[in-house]
Amino acid sequence: MAETLLRGSDITQRWGGLVAVNAVSIELERGSVHAVIGTNGAGKSTLINILSGEFPPTEGKIELLGQEATHWSQAKRARQGLGRSYQRNTIFPDFTVFENCRLAAQAQVQRPWVWWNNAQKCKHSVTAANHALELAGLMSVKERFAGLLSHGQKRQLEIAMCLAIQPKVLLLDEPLAGMGAEETDRMLELLASLKRDHAILLVEHDMDAVFRIADRITVMVNGSVIASDTPDQIRVNADVQTAYLGGH
């Protein structure tokens, strides 16, 4: 049986009278890509923000690697093995591609009091950064300034920065946004290669890509889950077709 690395139970988020996420439960298992789909405003990004610790849920419980993590800060969750990417690029454009990853990797070995040591010589972060760049296929551009990368490469770098912290769980918020067909294929290959060692939550609008890569799909409408099943079952689910695919 696959190991559950992240579990969210009955997660609810209220903003005043608005229920952005309504009693959503979700489990992420190692070796599996769990996609969350839904129209704009369905609550996907709010869910990912809650799971990653940007803000605590109004109600509900989160377990990370078997530990109660509902009230952990975002930084603590990241240090415990939860990496996330954002809808919009959050790379450091003035740093090299390598330094983007090295800085992220540095979070695992924080030694701020050693003020006389040059960070570039930190063996752990250099090794972790190189490994992440290797996985993300960015070694050939590691010395380039991140701001000069193509859009697809920037999205890859965003994921490489997540990998640099050596996570066990990856929460990816629209990693394919704005990508062309070739770049999408490359990214899906990357995700497929990462699947073996990670539990991946994928929030994505590109349905073709989702049905190609996901092992399980959760469909959200107005903050609630209307279906959660394998891609084949979701494809034929009448509620999903009505609510999300417009009945086609």
Binding site: R84, I91, F92, L103, Q106, P112, N117, I165
Partner: peptide, 29 residues
Amino acid sequence: AILLGSHFGRVLAGIRINEQRMRASGFST
């Protein structure tokens, strides 16, 4: 100059550019 090149200084540089990313990477800023 030495401080800004150290672990501490690089984290400050990261905070200047994108504090949200620094938190998501595991830094309590």
